[in-house]
Design a protein around this nucleic acid. Structure first.
Length: 196
DNA sequence: TGGTCGATCAGCT
DNA sequence: GCTGATCGACCAA
């Protein structure tokens, strides 16, 4: 299984979004491997994107990591209680990122189930299994990602991506929850794996 | 099956 | 003091 290296992330958030679909998002926690297949993402195109935290070049403690090398984690808190995980794209001083919106659990099912529902995977209802990581906040909870993971290097061995050769068909739509962003709200920058 | 609403915090004004 | 790249609980029908 090929672990993705820095080069993979060094492209615009839109291109990276499409390449991320079907890839395997891995974390090693307490020596246990937890992973899920990325099934839904959104591109945030930085300076010119009114929906992006880095719109117009806004640079704060929070957005700082997006101005660095690509292939790092950008984690922020939304609505006071949920974390959202992004992967920094492009290049130094080009603050673009890809929001990981959903994943399909592959390994470490019990670890995810315990973190989300405080019970083992086999005790989950059908709905709970579906809901394990099918949203940005849920995925972070299942994968154990919070603000302390902001700035993690995906080219190290704690959190990283793998390519198992999967090349899914891609569907496109408007991004979610950014109605305030005027014309940018209509851009088709949400990508997800096509269901048959 | 679908609408509304509260939780709760970082960043901005 | 307000608002948001969300979620899940609760209620109505």
């Amino acid at each position: 299984m090929a672990k993705l290296t820095r080069d993979f992330y060094k492209k615009s958030a839109i291109l990276l979004s499409k390449d991320l679909l079907g890839k395997i998002f891995v974390r090693i926690i307490d020596g246990k491997k937890i992973s899920c297949r990325i099934s839904e993402v959104e591109a945030y195109m930085g300076i010119l994107d009114k929906a992006a935290h880095s719109y117009s070049g806004k640079r704060t403690n929070r957005t700082e990591v997006m101005y660095g090398e690509p292939g790092f984690l950008y984690v922020f808190i939304i609505y006071g209680m949920y974390n959202c995980a992004n992967i920094v794209a492009a290049d130094v001083d080009i603050p673009e990122a890809v929001l990981i919106r959903a994943g399909v659990p592959l390994e470490g099912l019990d670890e995810m189930a315990l973190r989300r529902y405080n019970k083992t995977y086999s005790l989950l209802s059908k709905k709970e299994k579906l809901n394990l990581a099918n949203g940005p906040g849920k995925l972070c909870k299942a994968m154990g990602i919070d603000r302390t993971d902001n700035g993690e290097d995906l080219c190290e061995n704690i959190t990283y991506l793998e390519d198992d050769g999967s090349r899914p068909e891609i569907s496109v739509s408007k991004r979610i929850g950014i109605d305030y962003a005027e014309e940018a709200a209509d851009f088709l920058w949400r990508f997800y794996i096509k269901e048959e």
